[in-house]
Design a protein around this nucleic acid. Structure first.
Lengths: 332, 332
DNA sequence: TAACGTTACGTTAGCGCTAACGCGATTGTA
DNA sequence: TACAATCGCGTTAGCGCTAACGTAACGTTA
């Protein structure tokens, strides 16, 4: 099956040149005449020569591959993000490893470790659950690192962000403007930066609307449909009188919708629900979900573009942060 | 930033042994005393030594990495499949490249080509849009290949499958049993094997139920929400009298739901809709979607397990095909 | 005790590529 | 015409690992 691999030596022989000339031709480097280049390229084509990226990586100390570490590719937010990032990478001729962490810091550490062994050129880390110090240490050996929705700056480091805080604030303000007074928050997982940002935005929004802060209306949640459902039930039990819920993400909001339906409350009649992210499924549930829109594909492609730039040695210019935008549908 | 990489030579020096001994210790190979092994491992730990998989791959001619080629990771079916596969790979200490083809045969060819350059050990190809001959040629250089939902057998080759044909037949039979008489089919993309299988199952189901075949009730579709919506509109225009639709997948079915709603038909009152795959979102749309259930995570992990086995040189034992099961919800 | 494993390492030779340098031949310049 | 400055290519030396073989030192057996 695995017939002998065609190497640069074969092409060199066929074209009557040295191996080095083959290397130069394949990489479009200067230093050879147009006719020679042509001849080498034709020979390579004829022999279906595919340079070994492994050997190239070893010799050049650059693998031209990247890694993306995220909690869960099956989560549409991360799937869409990853797809956009991969597409940009492909356009630049680079391949990418995908690693799932299942929201587990240890798995995240393991993933990073494993990528280190792959001699990867850089990583995008989305939804990191690692505390600052551990994260810094874990990525210290990577040449280029981009964090999604977590601040990170330095030589070879950068981040792309959605203004989660402002988004949450606007969502709360909107809910308040429609007469909601007791607004609950499904805050998200313990360690996520997103949780902190949304919580801050929640405070901002309440303040802007002149509403009091009641800590009993804040409930942590796992950012999945099931997690949102469980958290909502807990929240309802503790504070049956709430008239609105802002969820960490759309999945949790969908879970909330379910819990509300199961406990016989009408949405948006009895209680309004808002999500975050504006994942495609937010529009197709019934009632369709009001949410804070984020341009996820843009986030992904900007992350990869930034990573590519950092890998080229460019200084981390500040990528403009995405302005959030509230999208109103049926659930509010 | 990128401080000097720690190599086997460093560990060898630190432990007072030869490089080869380090290699043996790191790979758990026999041929050294327990005390020496211990000493080397400790030195490696102390120096945070991570063997370069690149160098290992070059020297051993096995990269211990795999590739997964699929139409679109943002499609939940493939995202869930990929996640399960990646998880199995990780457990075996292998990393995996993800490639999107956007349903484009040329991109698929390009992806395979690119993976060839990565010296990958094997590939999983899901939803291949390549004609048989091209596919065979494109994968000829890979040591191990697993196709998802497309038959493939041989040394180093295998496939995992859901019984799509039988699933479609059962769906049609179910619809007929509830009194539906004019059942349309959103058949899927032109080249997909899934399209052929579902079409055959559609015929089977009609025959079983004693219903006539009317080719004008079959409409091709792109397997996305939008694709399903567009195809449904076309179908309704040509055959306004249909009373049921079976869709290629759940996304297309959701698109159908939308189109039906937009044209003022009630589901399941005026017309029943069934999907295929039982993606999580099938349960959360309203009306919730009746569908043909598939165990997608199992499909993904079996695919990777099979790939691992093939890579180890095992003969391709037949992986049992998944029995489809009709799940009834609100849309029928 | 000689002959023969076995065990526990070290040595040698690459894997397929690229960086860095070398060197003759062709230009350009005064 | 002489000199340097290219250009166009080849040579050499690895990148960090492993396969395969070499070799001492220590049993084991008859």
């Amino acid at each position: 099956m695995k017939n002998e691999r065609c190497t640069a030596a074969d092409v060199a022989l066929a074209a009557g040149v040295s191996i080095m000339t083959v290397s130069r031709a394949m990489n479009g480097r200067p230093g050879l005449g147009p006719d020679t280049r042509q001849r080498v390229l034709e020979a390579a084509e004829r022999l279906r020569y595919r340079p070994s990226k492994t050997a190239r990586a070893l010799a050049s100390r650059r693998s031209s591959t990247f890694g993306i570490v995220l909690p869960d590719v099956a989560n549409p937010f991360f799937a869409i993000l990853a797809k956009a990032a991969i597409d940009v990478a492909r356009a630049a001729g680079r391949n990418v490893f995908i690693m799932n962490t299942d929201e587990d810091p240890d798995l995240e550490l393991g993933a990073l470790d494993s990528l280190l062994g792959e001699d990867i050129d850089g990583v995008i880390i989305a939804g990191s659950r690692l505390p600052e110090a551990k994260l810094l240490e874990a990525v210290s050996a990577f040449g280029a690192v981009v964090l999604v929705n977590r601040d990170f700056l330095g030589p070879g480091r950068g981040s792309v962000n959605v203004e989660d805080r402002e988004g949450a604030a606007q969502a709360i303000a909107y809910l308040a403007s429609t007469g909601r007074r007791r607004i609950g928050l499904l805050a998200g997982p313990r360690i996520a930066t997103g949780t902190k940002r949304r919580l801050a935005g929640y405070h901002d929004g309440l303040a802007r609307s002149g509403l009091p802060l009641d800590r009993s209306l804040v409930e942590r949640c796992i950012p999945t449909i099931d997690g949102g459902e469980v958290a909502t039930r807990a929240l309802l039990e503790r504070a049956p009188g709430i008239d609105a819920i802002l969820a960490y993400n759309d999945l949790a909001a969908i879970g909330a919708l379910r819990a509300l339906e199961a406990t016989g409350r009408s949405v948006p009649g009895d209680i309004a629900v808002m999500g975050t992210d504006d994942v495609p499924y937010a529009a197709i549930v019934r009632p369709s979900l009001s949410t804070v829109h984020a341009d996820i594909p843009r986030l992904g492609s900007e992350a990869m573009s930034l990573l590519l730039a950092l890998d080229e040695g460019e200084e981390p210019s500040l990528v403009p942060t995405q302005e959030p935008r509230v999208v109103i549908r049926e659930s509010t």
